[in-house]
Amino acid sequence: MTNPPVSHKPKHGIKRKKNLAKLKTRQKAKAIEKIEKKNDAVTFEVVFVGRSNVGKSTLLKNLTGRNVRTGKRPGVTLKPTHLYFDDFLITDMPGFGFMSGVTKEKSDDVKDNIVHYIEEHADRIMIAVQVIDGPAFVEITERWDSRDEIPIDLELHDFLEEMEIITIIAANKMDRVKDDEKDDLLNDVVGIFGYDRGEGTWKESGALVAPVSARGGDIRPLISHLKNEFHKMKRDDLFKHFK
């Protein structure tokens, strides 16, 4: 009985896979090194924070002209998204609160990661833009109050103040509010956040409030507040990064 023929097939496939694995490892290392260099150069950061599905990513896209990951499903953004401009960094933080298809444990982890990120980079985070759903904000707050719980939005706002980070409240989706109802709504918003407006309206409260409509493209109040704060910090050079 003869022995079966010995296969002399070249092992090119295995070698090719090993080479591809090495290439991917090198590419990953270079990408990490590149990000680290960018991070080392950052001296001024603006973070965008808020509940899931309030329109942070869409607002950022309109503000900078840069493509930012967006989605209709709450919780699409689970990790910080960074936009680098030399020594200036804009960060879109993950949305907190309800996230479709995400467990409560994961949702809590996301919230904790937001806090840890801000604590870790507090020395370079000069401004936070806290985006809220203008039309729904009062109702959401009342729902939390009815359960004798402090709304996450207020916890976050207080935390940013404790960290001494200038906070702009961007009340988004204001195109859904009737013109003659906007002032009353914004009066309620600043009251919920604890600002005293005295005998005046929300404009006299001292709060940095920007009523905007990301989808409608009306973000001028936010740009105005940002530029004003940049000017106070002698960073007029940052104006060029906004549309």
Rank of each mutant, 00 (worst) to 15 (best):
V110H: 00
K234P: 04
V212W: 04
T103C: 04
E149S: 05
T167M: 02
E142G: 09
F239A: 11
G75K: 03
Y117P: 02
V42K: 11
R147L: 14
L20N: 13
I152W: 00
G194D: 13
P211K: 12
Y195T: 10
D86F: 03
T141A: 07
L23D: 15
G198R: 10
I165W: 03
G13L: 12
K18M: 12
R16S: 08
T103P: 04
E119N: 09
L89E: 15
E36A: 09
R220K: 12
I152S: 00
K22E: 13
F98Q: 05
D109N: 08
K234G: 07
E204S: 13
G95R: 01
G101C: 09
A122Q: 10
R176P: 10
I150A: 04
E45C: 14
V131R: 00
T70E: 12
D236W: 02
F96R: 01
K15I: 15
S100K: 14
T58E: 02
T201F: 06
M126Q: 11
K227M: 07
P5L: 14
G200C: 11
S146K: 14
V49L: 06
T64V: 04
L89V: 14
R197K: 15
N67R: 10
I152F: 00
L154Q: 07
L222A: 01
S7C: 15
F242N: 10
T58G: 02
K18C: 08
G71V: 09
V131W: 00
I14Q: 10
K37T: 14
I165C: 06
K38M: 15
N39H: 12
I125M: 05
G97W: 01
E204M: 07
V115P: 01
V212Q: 06
K106H: 06
N39R: 15
I35H: 06
D218L: 05
G95S: 05
N228C: 04
V68K: 02
P10M: 06
G200L: 09
D237R: 08
K240P: 13
K30V: 12
T64P: 02
V138E: 01
H8Y: 08
L20A: 10
I192T: 09
F242R: 09
S224L: 04
I168G: 00
K28R: 13
I169V: 10
I35C: 04
I219A: 05
F96N: 01
I127D: 05
T25W: 05
V42F: 05
K34Y: 06
P211N: 14
G101M: 10
L156E: 00
D148Q: 13
G13A: 11
K15A: 11
S107T: 12
S213T: 15
D153L: 00
K173S: 01
K30G: 03
T141D: 05
D158T: 06
R69L: 13
K243M: 08
G216Q: 07
T58A: 03
R215C: 05
D108G: 03
Y195Q: 07
M126W: 02
G13C: 04
V54A: 02
G200Y: 05
G134N: 09
F98I: 11
R66Y: 02
G134Q: 08
H8S: 14
A170W: 00
K178W: 06
E161L: 10
E142M: 14
S224Y: 03
H121M: 11
D188M: 11
L59F: 00
N67T: 14
T91Y: 05
S146M: 13
R197F: 04
T91L: 09
E229R: 02
K203G: 06
L83V: 11
V47R: 02
I152G: 00
F242S: 10
R69V: 13
K104D: 14
I140K: 11
